[in-house]
Design a protein around this nucleic acid. Structure first.
Lengths: 235, 235
DNA sequence: CGAAGGATTGATTAGTCTCAACGCAAGTGG
DNA sequence: CCACTTGCGTTGAGACTAATCAATCCTTCG
């Protein structure tokens, strides 16, 4: 999901990006809000290190996690167009992020049509992921849902070179997995135990080990097409 | 959702749009695919009349409806950037739509920055709706989910002037409502009966009557902020 | 050592699904 | 114009997934 992986960018374009990502950098502690529903968006956030998430809360407190961001992910291109946030962003782990102001952002889009194109690509993939999450919660069983989340995060981390053979970081608590999949924490616990018994995965100390990715993808009915990894930026 | 409602457009911009929407117009019968998952996108589709939908199918046939389109809705700006569709589009009712080719589309975006901006706005609202659907299925009960769908469609139809006092068209079958909310058709049937008993709504002959929208919004925990109706195109 | 956050376990219940049948209205063909 | 089909909505009985409530157990860490 690295911006520079969207499309092939000329070195001038890369330079523009590098500049923009250095101007305003912040470090946030784990489980801290970045921006809340109702607030006016002032920056486009780019995650440089760590995991972050989107979530939405109903009037009575029920909470749905809507997506996760990992290093390289851009939160909301052009978010300034909206008067207020309809959801919140928060950190999962300690996070390093870059803030890009509206004027900086617009200048970048104008100076490089390639980057503007890359931003559209990024946005289209973001919606596609959200659609897959809707499908995940609407149609899959608890077991399949959690397996699907594991697949998605593993594949995304692998694409950005953040896996170590069959392992990757996985800093979510079982409660967070529950909020992301529309289940309860207790049921997530039991389901993960079942997956362990089935020799599908190992999950402890914030690390996920996938014994057989093909089998995991198969039980999850995981089809990576929605990540659109076959774009021109790749060989 | 009418393109011309996104932002205030100059009459020259309106002219550009009007032109583009007249070039290639098709009429499709009800329950007919417009484009299928896996195919290469060739056009941006704009719904001129009727209802359409996005859906996604798992390998074993389970189907999730992901969103509905009504007159004025633009299906996927810049969809050409993606090599293949990760979901399908189909009609619900008989539909009249306009197809815009890649070159036409790019020309429009270049000729009018205001329209380009409007397209970004449209895309941001589309993701916001998708997030709300994820939340709907993940957190709300069956009763709340269906009420929420009723609210969303009623408000969107009203915004585009397609309601008649407390009534609107509602051409979905109970099976389709089920596929959109992640429930079974049987349970949707029972839940709607309950809503009728509660004097919340009336639904027959493809028409929905909302007795008290405030009460419906309240039981659905419906917050219209995600539709971002407070944009500059409106007073 | 005590506190706190997270994971695990057990018992019970609720919400939703499954399967199967039936009803009704509209359309179709002989 | 009647018999048949088809699509959609309704009803019933029973099964099962996942939720709820409530403890208990770990680990980590100050």
């Amino acid at each position: 999901m690295h911006l520079s992986a969207f499309v092939r960018l000329a070195s001038a374009d890369r330079e523009i990006l590098t500049q923009a990502l250095q101007r305003r950098v912040r470090i946030l502690e784990p489980r801290q809000d970045i921006i809340r529903e109702g607030e006016r968006p002032r920056f486009v956030n780019v995650i440089l290190e760590g995991w972050a998430q989107r979530y939405k809360q109903l009037a009575d407190g029920r909470r749905q996690i809507l997506s996760f961001f990992i290093a390289g992910d851009l939160c909301d291109a052009n978010i300034f167009i909206l008067k207020q946030m309809d959801h919140s962003l928060s950190t999962v782990t300690r996070v390093k992020l870059a803030e890009i102001s509206q004027s900086e952002f617009q200048e970048i889009m104008e100076r490089s049509p390639r980057i503007a194109q890359a931003l559209w690509w990024n946005e289209l993939v973001t919606v596609a992921i959200q659609r897959e999450w809707t499908t995940n919660i609407g149609q899959r069983t608890a077991y399949e849902r959690i397996a699907h989340l594991f697949c998605e995060m593993f594949v995304r981390l692998r694409t950005t070179g953040r896996t170590d053979d069959d392992e990757c970081e996985f800093p979510l608590t079982q409660s967070e997995i529950a909020e992301a999949t529309g289940l309860t924490q207790v049921h997530v616990n039991r389901t993960i135990q079942e997956m362990r018994r089935d020799q599908l995965i190992e999950l402890r100390n914030k690390r996920l080990k996938v014994f057989d990715l093909d089998r995991l993808m198969s039980v999850a009915l995981f089809n990576p097409n929605y990540l659109h990894l076959d774009h021109e930026g790749l060989a």
